[in-house]
Design a protein around this nucleic acid. Structure first.
Length: 455
DNA sequence: ATGTAC
């Protein structure tokens, strides 16, 4: 190991944590050019190479690397939350109607396709323009952009590094949710922990919000697949001794490293555009039930990225490439990259729970910088495999149980629902409490699900 | 996460 490995957890999370997390975070700590420490967030679980819930920063001047497995297959998977201006009492009588409208409007499930088809020029615009491009196409409002990381457009995206196959897989998938843990949820604010910050974020108890969790679909997956292969082949050429083949990586200064960064940034734009188009579809769908309602964006976060950021190392600012795989950026108050509306209080962080359980809104703190390069958890984190979950739960029974609790589930796949059983996840409340107590982030509000459109 | 295998 070149640096220590640090796991943020309490006794209960540590006891249940997959032993693979210890092994994987230790392996990450041995990669070339890693700085300070390799970190595992409280929701960490076994992933490909890096644990999901892993954070690691690399210095390009010390032989630092970029790893496709350190970002994950679903590049720039993330969450955005929209205000509705509605209260629980407004929505309650129309829940079925709203669920129907949303399920009809937003394609969900494995291989889901949308009504948008990208030709070569549109694909290029999307890969380089992100949510800004989506706005230019008419899918959104100007005011949306400042409420996204990178202002809705990741600079440094290089469309020519995105393969024809990756483009082919994506051309009919814009504005679709996908499968797995992706969802669109109508939620109510159940509790506020920090009144001042909640006011700035526009959240009051019983306000209804809509959260969208999805990523870069087939495109990100294809880019991840191709570069993992190429990085594994190139590792010996770069004389990198890998403790695990899945940690395939390339020096940040190498041609392959730069190609991956260019393609990954294009995938970040794809995810931003995708969530933007789904936002537009959501606005239209909600209007069919609540004609006068306007959905304003609270914020959009990515939790699978590698970003170039300035961080203090031994009192000196350094430009580092921070991998966050299943980890949410947590910029604190005063950070220059935050829009004016959040600069006093810190970045909103949207933490999706498991199906049928709470989600949380957190915010970045000054302390976050000293803990894990301004990072915290991204969700509940799996506690068992998908296969194990399907053996233990039936999708139809879960849908019925949740309906009894007033939560409407709409999904094209009952097996998908079983894989996402709440019991297959850690307790998200424990995860965010640990994040709060460890100083990774601060709790702002708790959200409870009313309707879940599940991929 | 994923055209759940190429």
């Amino acid at each position: 190991m070149r640096v220590p490995a640090v796991i943020y957890a309490d006794a209960s999370l540590l006891r249940d944590m997959d032993q693979k997390v210890y092994e994987q975070i230790t392996n990450v700590a041995s990669l070339p050019g890693i700085v300070e420490a390799a970190y595992a967030m409280p929701d960490a679980h076994w992933g490909y190479g890096f644990p999901i819930g892993g954070v690691a920063a690399f210095d390009p001047d010390q032989g630092g690397v970029v790893s496709a497995g350190g970002v994950g297959f679903d590049i720039s998977c993330g969450v955005r939350t929209l205000h509705t201006g509605l209260q629980l009492a407004d929505v309650r009588p129309y829940k079925q109607q709203l669920a129907d409208a949303l399920y009809k409007a937003i394609p969900a499930g494995v291989g889901s396709k949308g009504r948008i088809h990208l030709n070569h020029d549109l694909m290029h615009g999307m890969l380089t323009g992100g949510a800004q491009w989506a706005l230019e196409q008419g899918w959104g409002e100007d005011s949306d952009l400042e409420r996204m990381e990178e202002g809705g457009r990741m600079v440094g995206a290089v469309a020519s590094y995105v393969s024809p196959k990756a483009r082919e897989r994506q051309k009919d998938e814009m504005g679709t949710l996908g499968s797995g843990n992706h969802y669109l949820e109508v939620q109510r604010v159940a509790e506020v922990y920090d009144q001042h910050v909640a006011n700035v974020f526009g959240l009051r108890v019983d306000d209804v919000v809509i959260s969208i969790h999805c990523g870069s679909r087939g495109l990100g997956h294809q880019i991840g697949t191709e570069f993992l292969r190429d990085m594994a082949i190139a590792a010996s050429q770069y004389r990198i001794d890998l403790p695990d083949r899945e940690l395939a990586c390339a020096p940040l200064t190498s041609p392959l490293g730069k190609q991956y960064l260019g393609a990954m940034r294009a995938a970040i734009n794809c995810a931003l555009a995708n969530r933007q188009i789904i936002t537009h579809l959501t606005r239209d769908a909600v209007k069919t039930v609540f004609p006068g309602v306007h959905l304003g964006l609270l914020y959009d976060v990515s939790h699978n990225t590698c970003k170039l950021e300035q961080h203090a190392i031994n009192g000196q600012k350094k430009a580092l490439f921070v991998h966050r795989k299943g980890a949410t950026r947590a910029f604190g108050p005063g950070h220059p990259d935050l829009p004016a509306v959040f600069r006093q209080v810190g970045q909103p962080m949207l933490i999706g729970g498991s199906m049928g359980t709470s989600s949380y809104v957190l915010c970045g703190t000054q302390e976050s910088e000293k803990r894990a390069f301004n990072s915290a958890c991204h969700g509940a984190g799996r506690a068992m495999s998908r296969h194990q979950a399907t053996k233990q739960w039936q999708g139809s029974a879960l849908v019925d149980d949740l309906a009894d609790r007033g939560i409407i589930i709409r999904s094209p796949s009952l097996r998908g629902v079983a894989e996402e059983a709440p019991g297959a996840y850690k307790d998200v409340s424990v995860v965010v409490d640990v994040a709060d107590r460890a100083g990774l982030a601060r709790k702002v509000a708790q959200l409870e699900p009313l309707i879940c459109i599940k991929g």
